[in-house]
Design a protein around this nucleic acid. Structure first.
Lengths: 201, 201
DNA sequence: CCCACTCGGATGACGTCGTCATCTGTATGA
DNA sequence: TCATACAGATGACGACGTCATCCGAGTGGG
């Protein structure tokens, strides 16, 4: 026998999974609440018992993806440098295997309660910065950590948009990521330029 | 008296402008062909005489934005380093003044004829690489050029998503751009990147 | 053991959207 | 002058997000 709460949780899970699947298959426009419901085996109105609207459902998918990513990079083992590269590889991997969910993760927090998605991405940032702090000098952690993460995300985005196959960059995402990591790993705090104004908040 | 071709071109222009406006104001979901038509002062079906579908219209807007950006960075004057900084500043400026159009530009080429948007972004890449080639060694142009452009675009995207105000990165987009430019081009950071370049349109 | 209650889920409906088939009016060219 | 072509207007259709309403099964008290 299934309790009512259990069945409700199962429905929520099924809806979430169906949405993630459809998002993977055809992007946000292919995520139709009607199709989601059908694939989850529930009625059209059922998702509204768990998510305020379509945007909130998509945000919930992204939130789970952020949490999965956080767990993944938090359990990396090896040398600090290897862990850092592992984290970046994990990010690249998400972008390549789940382009649309990747874009959803990196887009602006949406839905009825954006704070939830913000919190999830915040934790990922913390985990990532923890790895960075083992590789670069303490005072450069945020600057280099932020640059690594946002830079790599931009590289991935360019690859997903086909800019390396159809554009003029005669290079690849892998090479760029490697270049960026090498640049940051090589430049040690010795030459910290005076540019660093007061950090934002 | 207006010739038929002239009136048709005017309609196309009005539709394009109306779409860009609505995109600026409320993002892609706010771009309704009905609203576009109304704002352009034409009927609901008129846009279909010039654009295959909504995605093609959005792609046409992005194409024009790429062309405008290409023209802008192609006419920059000053030292090579200043021109490179100016190009990146122009990119940042588009992201800040027209976030949704910026996202449209950096998203995957869409519409009935993606090649058109691809060509436009290709020209921008060429113009940008031309600037980069004056600052870095010949053999590093593509690697560093691609890294600069995609890296900065990732930084902007993070800012647009609010990751610097709600996240754990205790830094700012300006600082990250400066850091990246300094790392790659060994060009001293500008005092304030946000400053003076003219916004796109 | 029974019953009223609760609440997740199902259903019907509404307004809006993208899109297309069809119609109309006017500039064009012979 | 008039037939033609074509931009634009209009009506219609299916699909979508969303909500008001209804249903039925798990639940707790008697």
């Amino acid at each position: 026998m299934v309790s009512r709460a259990e069945s409700a949780a199962a429905t929520r899970r099924a809806v979430l999974d169906a949405a993630a699947e459809l998002l993977d298959e055809g992007g946000p426009d292919a995520v139709t609440l009607r199709d989601v419901s059908a694939r989850a085996g529930v009625s059209r109105g059922a998702p509204y018992g768990h998510f305020a609207d379509k945007d909130s459902l998509l945000a919930a998918v992204a939130t789970e993806d952020w949490e999965r990513f956080s767990d993944e990079i938090a359990t990396l083992r090896g040398t600090p440098a290897a862990k850092l590269r592992g984290a970046l590889t994990a990010l690249v991997s998400i972008g390549r295997h789940h382009p649309h969910r990747y874009r959803q993760m990196l887009g602006p927090p949406a839905g009825e309660d954006p704070a939830q998605m913000v919190a999830a991405s915040c934790r990922a940032q913390e985990e990532f910065l923890a790895l960075v702090s083992q590789v670069v000098d303490k005072q450069d952690v945020h600057r280099y950590g932020g640059l690594l993460f946002t830079g790599v995300s931009g590289i991935i985005n360019a690859e997903l948009s086909g800019h390396f196959t159809t554009g003029k960059w005669r290079t690849s995402a892998d090479e760029l990521v490697d270049t960026l990591v090498t640049l940051i790993a090589h430049v040690q705090p010795s030459d910290h330029m005076a540019g660093g104004s007061s950090p934002a908040r």
